[in-house]
Design a binder for these strands. Structure first.
Lengths: 205, 205
DNA sequence: GAGTTGGTTGACCGGGTAGTCAGTTCACTG
DNA sequence: CAGTGAACTGACTACCCGGTCAACCAACTC
């Protein structure tokens, strides 16, 4: 029997998968990859440990799935907002503000995102190659804006890839402080601080 | 019997401590805290596992010791160089260049430093409270320069603590790329890139 | 060279967890 | 309502690793 083009089996699978993924996100966020146990994820999802292994091959695979999920959503949301912006200043602002907005709505995912990117830089990521891509897609978004800005004379001349990385990492760490220590401060202030810092630097005039 | 005011016992203890610490630094750098095992550290140091526990209370304590060591040396070196600089621009430059120089000479320590600071931000540090201090001492160094610069009209007005953190983290991530992916590029270039970015921002003029 | 002292060793213990699989449940079918 | 099998369970295995400690040297003393 099928409903709306999906068999019962598919519906159940989808439901369980989502249920386990959500639990995993919470536990991984709280405990980190090593600290999280499959038992605790199963408990949080309200299923037995064995069930987790019916839907995900291994702990690592489960972790990756929850990471991929979140990063793809982030990328799409930010890319859409940037597409709406007209000039490079607005696009850069959208890049920053979009991230702050997304993670304000996805607090717990931020911990996973942050630690995994730190590890990526360090070469100790659980997900080296699978994840390098996701990083580069985002960096490309930013590099495009910077290159455009220089062509248009709106930005001074600098090495684009290096600077894109600086900005990218700057946003990530600013986000870390906002999300993890910001005590619910609304994102307008840090967004402005980051944008001003990037745009104007700290020098007078 | 004593030689140069130190008993034989003290000499041996000092030697062993240094030997184990150095091995630990290498292994922690390569594998991270969880990935490193006391067995492998002992092997690298050329002693038995039990011996490690004669000189350090626990794995955690050993990790902390290797961390403290390096961070204190870094702090002193940078503080000294900043003291030599005259105006706030030179001091800021010394803060950046000093770090690049120190870690160019202490590659493997950087991995430990970097991951532990990332974790500190995340609240998953192995060394939360002991380490917060070290962070704050460094941040204070930077905040002092910024406050001075604003008073003197050399810097535009901004929130000092927030901006100090931005700069601090910016340097850390730039260092990460330089040390871990830079392929031995000499540090002059990234130092200039970071300094210019901080001082002038990316906007034209 | 027997005795003493103190640094060193590595087999062992206990606790913890990723992953497995034989057994159970239960919705659905004929 | 008996039969079937897909979904689920959780006790169990195999392994790993931090930390301990009784036994083992080796240097030094008398």
């Amino acid at each position: 029997m099928t409903v709306a083009g999906r068999t019962k089996k598919e519906v159940i699978q989808e439901f369980r998968t989502a249920e386990i993924l959500e639990a995993a996100r919470g536990v991984f966020a709280e405990k980190g990859f090593e600290g999280a146990t499959i038992d605790s994820i199963a408990l949080a999802a309200g299923v037995a440990k064995g069930t987790v292994y019916l839907y995900f091959e291994s702990k690592r695979e489960l972790f990756l799935a929850s990471l991929r999920d979140g990063v793809c959503a982030l990328h799409e949301e930010v890319a859409a907002q940037m597409a709406n912006a007209e000039n490079c200043e607005a696009k850069l602002h959208a890049f920053i503000a979009g991230r702050f907005l997304y993670f304000s709505r996805n607090h717990e995912f931020f911990r996973i995102y942050y630690t995994e990117f730190s590890r990526l830089i360090c070469g100790t990521a659980s997900a080296q190659p699978e994840f390098q891509d996701l990083y580069e897609r985002q960096a490309a978004l930013l590099e495009g804006v910077l290159a455009q800005g220089i062509r248009e004379g709106r930005l001074r001349e600098f090495e684009v890839p290096r600077t894109a990385r600086l900005i990218y990492d700057l946003i990530r760490t600013a986000l870390a402080h906002h999300i993890l220590h910001g005590g619910g401060e609304e994102p307008g202030k840090p967004v402005r601080a980051v944008f001003d810092f990037v745009w104007k630097g700290i020098g007078a005039q």
